[in-house]
Design a binder for these strands. Structure first.
Lengths: 262, 262
DNA sequence: CTCCTTTAGGTATCTAGACGAGTGGGCGAG
DNA sequence: CTCGCCCACTCGTCTAGATACCTAAAGGAG
C-alpha cells in the first residue's frame, strides 16, 4: 500500500504554465505544511513519485532540490528524503553580557546550556597573534596586529556557532586572555580586572547563505542560512577593546534585544 | 576569443572523489572570489563550459544551481548567468525608535531613505480588523481580535521589507491608527497621544529561507534569506500595545544594536 | 547466536538529446 | 533611414536511460 494511493498528493495540471517540477514541489510543500508529512517523516521515494506523476526521475529530483533549497527537507543517501525537523533554538537575550552573569564563574554558553538540559561543548580552540584585517583594524581603532581567539560551540554534539574574538595586543598580550582558557567569567571578566571596565557593546547583524567552509564547520544542511554577528565591546573610556565575529546556524538561534523608547 | 582560453578556469581532477559539478562550482566560486569575474559580470555560458570541461550540459547547470543556492550568481533567461551584485544595505540602528526621531513628522523609513538619496515608497497598504493568531494573542496579552496594518516598503523600486503591525482593538479602534495614513510620526506618535507613553521595545530576530509567498512579495533572488523580526512595544504601565511582524530581504539590511554592559 | 554476504531499494551523479522561450543583433523591405 | 522579421545564442524544462554508492534487512556460514 503506497502512501500515494491515499490521496496525499494530487495530479498535475497540464494546462498550467507552471513547470511540472514546480507543481510537484508545490504539492509536496503543501502536504508538509498541512502536516500530512510530519517532522522527520520520510517523503515518497523518487521512484514512487515517478510512478505517481508519470514524469522522469530528473523532474522529481528537481522538485526535491527546490524543497531542499527552502530548507524544508533533506535527503539521506541510500535512505530517502525526509521532512527536516526544526531543531530547538537557543535564545540569546540582550542581557547575556550583564555583569551579574559574568560574575558567576562559568562561561555564559555552558551555564545557559546546562540550564535547559543540553550538553554543551567548546572545541577548535585556537589562540594566536595575527595581522588584523582591514575591517577589524578599523573597528578596533587602527591596530596592526591582534590577538585572535577562535572557538566553535556545540550543543548535544551539533555545532551551532563559530566565533573569533580579536583584541589589541597592548591589552591582551601576556595576560590570561592569551591563554587557551581565560578563566572564570571569560575574557570580559579579565578585561575588567585589567582596568578596562566595560561600558557597552555594539552588535551588527546580517543574514546570508553560508560559504562552503561554513557549511563544513557548522555541519549545515541545505537551505539553512547563517546569522553573522559582529560585536564590539567598548570600555568606559570609549575605547574598543574587543571585536567578536560570530557565525551562527540560523536554525539554532533566535536573538532577542531590548530597546529603550527614549 | 573565449574567456576560457585565457586560463580563468582550470581543469577537472578525474582522480578526485569530489563530484564533477562540485569541482566546476568550486572553480567558478573561486574565480568570483578572486575578482576574476566582477559584480554584474557575465559568466561563461553553459555551452562554453560544456566545451571547456567536456561534460554534459546538465552537469554544468548543476554547478550553476549550487552557486545560485549560495546567492553568488543569478541567471537571466535568454541572456546569461551573472555575478549577483551586492545591493546597498540599509542600516537599522537601535535608536531608530527614539522619541526625538518620532517628533520630526515624516515616517522613519522616508526620512532615512531621503537622507541617503534613495527613492522610498510604501505600498500594499491594508488596514483591517481580524482575529489574532495564537502567537500574536499571546504577545499582546490574550486579545481575541486585533487591528492589523500591513504595508510593503520599497527602495528605488525594489521591495525590501514587508511588515504587519497588530494592535489591540480597545486601543486602536476609532482612532487615527485605524486610518490608512496614521499621520506624522506614525502609529507610535498616535499611541503616545492616546496616553500610552512608550517605555521600551523587545525585538526577536530569526533568519531563514523565504516561503514562496515571500519570494514573490519581496522579489527575492535565489539564495537570499530573509530576516524575520518581531517587535513588541510596551508602554510605561508594562502593557504590550503593539506587535510588529517584519520580514526583510536579508541582502538589503544590517541591524545594529547597542547593549549596556550593566 | 553472531557475523558476514547478499540483495532490494534508496539517492548521487552523469550523459545525450529534444523542445520551449526570452534577448538582441543583423538584414532586408519599404 | 526605419521598422519588422529572422536567426543565433542563451537559459528553462523534460526525457530516458546508465553507473555508482549507501542503507537496511534477510539469510547463510560459522
Amino acid at each position: 500500500m503506497s502512501p500515494l494511493s491515499s490521496g496525499l498528493l494530487g495530479d498535475l495540471d497540464p494546462t498550467s504554465d507552471r513547470a511540472v517540477f514546480r507543481q510537484i514541489a508545490d504539492q509536496l510543500r503543501e502536504a508538509i505544511d498541512r502536516g500530512r508529512f510530519r517532522e522527520g517523516e520520510k517523503l515518497p521515494s523518487e521512484a514512487e513519485l515517478v510512478d505517481h506523476y508519470g514524469v522522469s526521475r530528473m523532474t522529481v529530483r528537481n522538485s526535491f532540490s527546490i524543497l531542499q533549497g527552502e530548507g524544508l527537507v533533506h535527503a539521506e543517501h541510500g535512505k530517502g528524503v525526509y521532512v527536516r525537523p526544526r531543531p530547538p533554538v537557543r535564545r540569546l537575550a540582550s542581557d547575556r553580557f550583564a555583569r551579574r552573569h559574568r560574575e558567576q564563574g562559568k562561561s555564559a554558553f555552558i551555564v545557559e546550556a546546562d540550564a535547559v538540559g543540553s550538553h554543551p561543548k567548546v572545541d577548535s580552540l585556537e589562540v594566536k597573534e595575527e595581522k588584523a584585517s582591514q575591517d577589524i583594524s578599523t573597528r578596533l581603532g587602527s591596530v596592526r596586529r591582534v590577538l585572535a581567539r577562535r572557538r566553535r560551540y556545540l550543543l548535544d554534539g551539533r555545532p551551532v556557532e563559530f566565533a573569533t574574538s580579536y583584541l589589541p595586543l597592548d591589552i591582551a598580550r601576556g595576560t590570561q586572555i592569551a591563554e587557551p582558557n581565560p578563566g572564570p567569567g571569560g575574557i570580559y571578566a579579565r578585561l575588567e580586572e585589567l582596568g578596562h571596565r566595560l561600558d557597552h557593546f555594539e552588535e551588527e547583524i546580517r543574514a546570508r547563505m553560508p560559504s562552503p567552509a561554513e557549511v563544513k564547520t557548522l555541519h549545515l544542511a541545505a537551505g539553512v542560512p547563517v546569522i553573522h554577528l559582529i560585536r564590539t565591546a567598548f570600555d568606559t573610556e570609549g575605547r574598543a577593546v574587543e571585536v567578536c565575529d560570530t557565525v551562527m546556524a540560523a536554525d539554532a538561534y533566535v536573538l532577542a534585544y531590548q530597546l529603550p523608547a527614549t
